[in-house]
Simulated scan of single mutants.
Amino acid sequence: MIYKNVLLTGAAGLLGTVLRRRLAPQVAKLRSTDIADMADPAANEELVKADLGDLSAAQKLVDGMDAIVHFGGLSKETDFGSICRVNIAGFQSLYEAAHLAGVKRIVFASSVHAIGFYDQTEVIDAHAPTRPDSNYGIAKVFGEGLAQLYWDKFGLETVSIRIGSCEAKPSNRRHLLSWLSFDDMCQIVERSLTVPRVKHTIIYGASRNSATFWDNRYAAHIGYRPQDSADDYRNEILAADPLPDREDVVNRFQGGIFTRWNMLPQSTEEPTG
């Protein structure tokens, strides 16, 4: 990696916990933060409990950091007021603090839900217009827009990872196209902190599944080479769901359950699923 001091947000979450273990051995200093409690820091890891929505707190968090891996914020669909306060206003605070502190690069956990209303029969690339499927998805679209602004205006680089369904193993038919393994997720983050020049790059986060919704041609410079595949679970998944309802939006759109109209107060699916 080309960055010595890295801030990891959302470090108490499922994916953040995985990233803590992978990033710590590769950097000089890892500062892990979350609004929730964390434990068992690595020798070179600093644990900081903080609210990113507080600009002064964000400024303290980014002080001395070269890069940020941002996996923080509300991780499920909920009311727009909560999403706006945490995932939109909080994210803007982080970017402004990073800019003022001279941070060089941010790796942003965007999501399939920024483009969730594309049909599952379509294959899209990073130049396709956004089609958010939820309040959560709207916040991811905002985040990608903010990343573009801070690159164009201030030269702060970002890799926005439109994470598919990042779970220990795929569990439904849609995941056969959208699954991202933990190891492949970590590889994207590591590559995003290694490539010398990224500007603002949008990359789709999926493993080496034989079927896919996404074309990563515009992120080829990241050098991501997925190693895992949902195909290993295909027979098990198809046997569990032999006759899917093709009229159900979960089986029609790339955003899956997030495209349902009434899913508040929160989804039972993982945020990136």
Rank of each mutant, 00 (worst) to 15 (best):
V6A: 06
L7P: 03
A12R: 06
P25T: 08
Q26K: 14
A28H: 07
T33I: 10
A36R: 15
M38W: 11
M38N: 04
A39W: 12
D40Q: 06
E46N: 03
A50V: 10
G53A: 05
A57W: 08
G64E: 04
M65N: 07
H70P: 10
F71N: 13
G73N: 02
S75G: 15
K76P: 00
K76S: 15
Q92H: 14
E96Q: 15
V107F: 05
S111R: 12
A114F: 06
E122K: 03
V123H: 04
I124C: 12
R131K: 15
S134P: 02
Y136V: 03
A139C: 09
K140H: 10
F142C: 14
L146N: 05
L149Q: 11
D152Y: 02
K153T: 05
K153E: 10
F154C: 09
T158Q: 01
S160W: 04
S160Q: 01
P170G: 12
N172H: 14
H175T: 00
L177A: 13
W179T: 05
F182D: 03
L193N: 05
L193T: 06
L193Y: 04
T194H: 03
R197H: 14
K199L: 13
A206W: 04
N209M: 04
A211L: 14
N216A: 07
G223S: 09
G223C: 08
R225V: 15
D232H: 12
N235R: 13
E236N: 10
L238P: 01
D241C: 05
P244Y: 08
V249A: 13
I257R: 11
W261G: 03
M263P: 00
P265I: 03
E270H: 11
T272A: 09
